[in-house]
């Protein structure tokens, strides 16, 4: 099955503040980024951290964020490794100037 988000796909991270372990840092929630590459599949840390054996296995993606989108300023980029369920396609992206 092809990956849901091929390299170059504009994505947006979820805003959710979950009541458990997660690997989506606060500073990157609800932010727009671009997929760099898929990294391979892994058990979803959020569920695995609860000691449950039923953690879904998902693709993890390297996602690149502009500092300006994260912090409102800065000229660097930050790349995070994010499970597929942390991401949704950023439909508005194409219309926006970056």
């Amino acid at each position: 099955m092809p990956d849901r988000f091929p390299p170059g796909t504009p994505v947006r991270t979820f805003r959710h503040d979950p009541p458990h372990h997660t690997r989506l840092p606060r500073y990157a929630r609800g932010k727009r980024g671009v997929v760099v590459e898929p990294e391979g599949h892994a058990e979803l840390a959020d569920v695995s951290a609860q000691g449950r054996g039923d953690a879904p296995v998902e693709q993890v993606y390297a996602v690149r964020f502009a500092a300006r989108d994260l912090w409102g300023e800065g000229d660097h980029h930050v790349v995070l490794d994010l499970w597929e369920s942390y991401l949704e396609a950023d439909e508005e992206d194409a219309a926006d100037e970056r």
């Binding site: 458990h20 372990h21 058990e43 840390a45 695995s48 951290a49 609860q50 000691g51």
Partner: peptide, 12 residues
């Protein structure tokens, strides 16, 4: 006995 994610969760 535990996995890495449970361990991280316990620290956090």
């Amino acid at each position: 006995i535990f996995n890495t994610n449970e361990f991280r969760d316990a620290i956090e």
